[in-house]
Amino acid sequence: MQTVLSVRGLTKNFGRLCAVNQLNLEVKAGQVFGMLGPNGSGKTTTLGMLMGVTNPSAGEFSWFGEAPSHTIRKRIGAVLEHPIFYPYLSGQKNLELNATIKQADPANIAKVLELVELTARKDHKYRTYSLGMKQRLAIASALVNDPEILILDEPTNGLDPMGIAEIRQIIKRIAADGKTIILASHLLDEVQKVCTHYAVLRKGQLVHSGPVDDVGKGEELVEVNAYHDDLGLILQRFEGAKSVKKDGANYSVQMNEGFHSHDLNKFLFSNGIVVSYLATQKKSLEKQFLEILSENKPA
């Protein structure tokens, strides 16, 4: 796949504060790339540098293998912070103005309004829109010139569960249309549901990156229970058990790599034990995220 964004040693200092430190990233065409990190990790600062809002102190980045330029930025749509719209104009009129400024084809307006599900409210004044509708209009505005890349900074910030679900579906539809999406978020569950790849930042430094599909791979954690007084002792004898812990009514068995729940079930059955409960607990992105931050915590 084509590399659409390459970041090498990107650094941003604000006086003594190093907001982004020697950041290296690569984003391929068609990816939905999530940037994760706690507040102050450098996500928004990074996006600001990529969009030319602020200048880097050191390092470099390129879009489509080229240095940033006005021509390149026309191929990128972005929603950073809170976009400005005229409250007394309708959603349609605001987008028409936006299209004029971007020299975009006005025929795109109907398409993006349909994409963000605002067609029925396109003639209503912007000031009557809910927070979720305002965010969806902002996404429509970023898409009006049909960019190849869409950048979103905390796209679901402040939204209720319904608004979050709506934005999630919109992101999936945009990705299905072949666009590359880069988004910053602290909502780990949402990133796991919409992103193909992710990176974790901590105090301006990259501490992990990889495919979302890799989350939970490797060692399995299996919860098991059975009507047997010596279940715990027998579990300790299983060669595939890395550790065995009592967890409420059940036992949690951390498996050695290469062993799975069916191996454990077979072992117990061979010892005359029929399990009453057996379940593999897949690691969530939230758990992996916390583990990554814990492993990379400064001494």
Rank of each mutant, 00 (worst) to 15 (best):
N55T: 13
N108G: 05
H82Q: 14
E96A: 12
D105E: 12
L150S: 03
S69P: 08
N98M: 13
A140P: 01
L47D: 00
L47R: 04
A138W: 11
Y86Q: 11
Y88Q: 13
G91S: 01
L115H: 02
T128M: 07
S130D: 06
Y126W: 12
G77H: 04
T71G: 00
L143F: 00
D123T: 14
K74R: 15
T71E: 15
L150H: 04
Q135E: 02
A110D: 13
A107D: 12
A67L: 12
I139N: 06
G48N: 15
Q92D: 09
R127S: 05
P106W: 04
E81G: 01
S69T: 10
L97F: 15
G132A: 08
F85I: 03
S141I: 09
K134N: 00
P83M: 07
H124F: 09
I101T: 11
K74C: 10
E117R: 15
N108F: 10
I149H: 10
N94W: 00
F85C: 01
L95G: 03
E117Y: 07
A120I: 02
A142F: 05
P68Y: 09
L97M: 15
R75E: 08
K93H: 08
A104T: 05
A78N: 10
K111D: 11
M133T: 01
A78G: 10
R73V: 00
Y86M: 12
Y88V: 08
L137S: 07
E60Q: 14
D105C: 12
Y126T: 08
K102E: 01
G91E: 04
